[in-house]
Design a protein around this nucleic acid. Structure first.
Length: 278
DNA sequence: TGCCAGGTATAGG
DNA sequence: CCTATACATGGC
């Protein structure tokens, strides 16, 4: 496919790119005019909203030429194209005014299927950090490891093999603080193949969570976020301070998971995005 | 300027 | 199972 060419990808139930980016699941989208530049899968793409979906333009690709079908298939999965989010937003009980308001407000938010290793590292970084501070640290890591997407000023996220070459001290200079050894050890254990993605993908939700939690610096919340955003386990419901606050206020402490199976993770994301309005 | 950030490891009950 | 405390550093 030629550069400059735009591909349309239909996303069932539509997307609001701004709301999705601000919902705190992905940390590397770069605002660019009326859309975002997104680095992933060895590519840099420009994405803009288009009726019922997105227009996608390949800015650069470090991989061998792919045909349009491959590109569409990769990014359709990333944006969870086939799942109809308008249906999911209709799931809340009308009597649940809080969740109804959150899903209404969250129209256009989708769960992005990100690359597992990047997701894990960014959520290890996320503990006790603001979203803007997470973004700063992630970018510093990418710049320090230093592999530009060809012909652009944007760095790709490092592979485990690349990241493990940064010592904990070098990682500390990325503003990681006490997390530096967590990141280093995680990169090492991925680099030796202990966490092969084919193997992880074959695990059920609970086993996946428990496996991720064998990593230092990965507790129940980071493991759940990684499984939800990096392995697309849509039924998992990560509980952070904001979600807990909502549960205490509106649900007597615990969410009615049985009502929203297998999409509890999406409900969680609507609630998180609504956190400023509690 | 001081407080807080999409928590976790650890020690102790 | 539970609770209390330390933790590095950047943003606002």
């Amino acid at each position: 496919m030629k550069s400059g060419e735009k591909l349309f990808i239909e996303l069932k139930g539509g997307i609001d790119l701004g709301k999705t980016e601000k919902s705190g699941q992905c940390f590397r989208w770069i605002p660019d005019g009326d859309g975002y530049l997104i680095p992933a899968f060895g590519m840099l793409v420009k994405v803009t909203e288009s009726k019922g979906g997105i227009d996608l333009e390949i800015i650069s690709s470090s991989k061998k030429k792919k045909d349009a079908d491959d590109i569409v298939s990769i990014w359709s999965r990333y944006f969870d194209a086939a799942l109809d989010y308008s249906k999911i937003r209709r799931m809340p009980d009308k009597k649940d005014g809080f969740l109804s308001a959150a899903t209404e407000s969250g129209e256009g938010i989708r769960i992005i299927y990100q690359e597992p290793f990047e997701t894990l590292i960014t959520f290890i970084i996320s503990q006790r950090k603001s979203i803007s501070a997470i973004k700063t640290s992630v970018e510093r890591i990418c710049e320090t490891v230093g592999r530009k997407i060809p012909g652009t000023a944007v760095y790709d996220f490092p592979t485990p093999g690349e990241l493990k070459n940064l010592s904990p001290d070098e990682l500390s200079e990325c503003g990681l603080g006490y997390r530096a050894p967590y990141i280093h050890e995680t990169a090492e254990r991925f680099a030796i193949g202990e966490f092969d993605s084919g193997y992880l993908n074959g695990l059920d939700d609970e086993t996946l969570i428990n496996t991720l939690m064998t990593l230092k610096g990965v507790g129940v919340k980071v493991a759940n976020c990684t499984a939800l955003f990096g392995f697309h386990r849509l039924d998992l419901f990560p509980i952070d301070v904001w979600i807990q606050r909502a549960l205490d206020t509106y649900y007597d402490g615990s969410f009615p998971l049985e009502k929203y199976h297998p999409y509890n993770g999406i409900m969680q994301q609507y609630i998180f995005a609504y956190r400023g309005k509690l």
